[in-house]
């Protein structure tokens, strides 16, 4: 059984993430303990609310360092919602720029759509070779609730690194819905709130550990 730590840094929705992971067979601990977070088979970084508030909470438990050290050792990390957004270089909310963890280049910015927040069940376009979306129909829907997103994937292609798998969704324009990049995975939607589709995705992630 995979041992998973859900990183507790004061952001909401921890209980849902914990239960959804248990549902697909993980042994879950919700904690900010550095050692537990380092030693777990997989680390889940949730996040809801404002980018700046999440970064503040994450910095308070030195979460960026935990994420960075795990990745340096090839140890899996899954970011969810704002937990995905903080993996990018920066977020801009209400004109305020907040520095993120910088695992990927890119900027989290307000969605340009008639109705914001983007709230509800939407489809995604997963690339070939995806492991997270394996076994899921192309028209399957996941639950999103966010006003900001990464609308431009800025990582330059290189012959020397395997390109990350980027999944896109659309609301007004296109935005990044998920990324699979070696040990680092992330979803803008909430798998823990996406019913059976979300359970399949989480199980797929556990299978990669």
């Amino acid at each position: 059984m995979s041992r998973i730590v859900v990183l507790d840094y004061g952001s909401g929705n921890l209980r849902s993430a914990e239960r959804a992971l248990q549902r697909v067979g993980a042994d879950v601990e919700v904690t900010s303990d550095h050692r537990a977070a380092m030693e777990a088979d997989g680390l889940v970084v949730p996040g809801v609310g404002a980018y700046a508030a999440c970064m503040e909470g994450l910095n308070a438990v030195r979460g960026g360092r935990i994420i960075g050290r795990r990745l340096a050792g090839g140890r899996p990390v899954l970011g969810i919602c704002v937990g995905m957004q903080i993996l990018f270089d920066r977020g801009i909310e209400h004109g305020q720029l907040t520095e993120g963890c910088g695992e990927w280049p890119g900027t989290v910015e307000r969605l340009q759509a008639d109705v914001v927040p983007h709230m509800g069940w939407n489809t995604v376009r997963a690339p070939e070779g995806t492991r997270l979306f394996a076994g899921l129909d192309a028209d399957i829907r996941f639950y999103f609730v966010h006003s900001y997103g990464v609308q431009k994937w800025e990582l330059e292609p290189s012959d020397r690194i395997r390109p990350p798998l980027v999944t896109w969704a659309e609301h007004g324009g296109e935005f990044v819905a998920a990324v699979e990049n070696g040990p680092l995975s992330a979803t803008q939607f909430h798998p823990e709130k996406s019913g059976d589709a979300g359970a399949t995705l989480l199980r797929n992630w556990l299978d990669t550990l």
Partner: peptide, 11 residues
């Protein structure tokens, strides 16, 4: 609310 959130995986 607690018991529902533990068993139902929609918002």
């Amino acid at each position: 609310v607690r018991r529902t959130a533990e068993q139902v995986f929609i918002p």
